[in-house]
Simulated assay, not measured.
Amino acid sequence: MSLELDIMEIITNAGESKSEAMMALHHAKRGEWDLCDDALTRSRDAASRAHAVQTKLIGIDEGEGKIPVTLVMVHAQDHLMTAMLANELIKEMIEVYRHKVY
C-alpha cells in the first residue's frame, strides 16, 4: 500500500507544481509580480516534494528492479517530468515578461 501512496504523492505534487507554474505565468502576463513570485515558490515546493518521493523510491530500488514498474508508476514519472519541463519553460517565459525582452 505504501508504494501506491508514494506514486499518488508524486502525481499529486507534480500536478500542483505544474498548475502553480501556470498560475505564475498568468500573473506575469498581468504584471502581478508578487503573486507571480508566490506561485513560483509554491510550484518549486510542490516539485521538491514530488522529487523527494521519487528519490526515495530510486534509493529503495537501487537499480535492481526491486520496485515493480507499473503503468501507474510510469504515469507518475510522466507527470513529474512534464511538470519539471513546464517549470523550466515557464520560468524563462516569465523572465521575458518581467524584463519585456521582445
Rank of each mutant, 00 (worst) to 15 (best):
S2C: 06
L3E: 01
E4F: 01
E4L: 09
E4H: 02
L5N: 15
L5W: 09
D6Q: 09
I7T: 14
M8E: 12
I11N: 01
I11E: 00
T12W: 02
T12G: 05
A14C: 10
A14V: 08
A14Y: 05
G15V: 02
E16M: 11
S17P: 03
S17R: 00
S17V: 05
K18G: 09
E20W: 13
M22L: 09
M23D: 12
L25T: 01
L25M: 08
L25C: 10
H26L: 07
H27S: 11
H27A: 09
H27I: 06
A28V: 09
A28C: 07
A28F: 04
R30Q: 11
G31I: 01
D34M: 15
D34Y: 15
L35V: 01
C36S: 07
D38Y: 03
A39L: 04
A39V: 06
R42C: 09
R42Q: 11
S43V: 08
S43P: 12
R44F: 15
D45T: 10
A46H: 07
A47Y: 10
A47R: 11
A47T: 02
S48F: 14
S48P: 02
H51C: 03
V53R: 01
Q54A: 04
Q54V: 00
T55N: 05
T55G: 05
K56M: 15
K56D: 07
K56A: 14
K56R: 11
I58H: 02
I58A: 09
I58D: 03
G59K: 08
D61H: 00
D61I: 04
E62C: 07
E62W: 01
E62S: 12
E64R: 13
E64S: 11
G65T: 08
G65A: 08
K66E: 08
I67N: 08
P68D: 02
P68C: 01
V69K: 06
V69R: 10
T70A: 10
T70I: 11
L71G: 06
L71A: 14
V72R: 01
V72K: 03
V74Q: 03
H75I: 04
H75V: 10
A76Y: 04
Q77N: 13
D78Y: 04
H79S: 06
H79L: 11
L80G: 03
T82K: 01
A83D: 08
A83Y: 06
M84N: 03
L85Q: 13
L85R: 09
L85K: 06
A86R: 07
E88A: 14
L89G: 14
L89Q: 12
L89V: 12
I90N: 03
K91P: 06
E92P: 04
E92G: 13
E92Y: 00
M93S: 14
M93A: 15
M93F: 11
I94N: 00
E95F: 08
E95W: 07
E95P: 00
V96Q: 00
V96L: 12
Y97P: 01
R98E: 05
R98Y: 02
H99K: 13
K100C: 14
K100R: 10
V101W: 06
V101M: 13
Y102C: 09
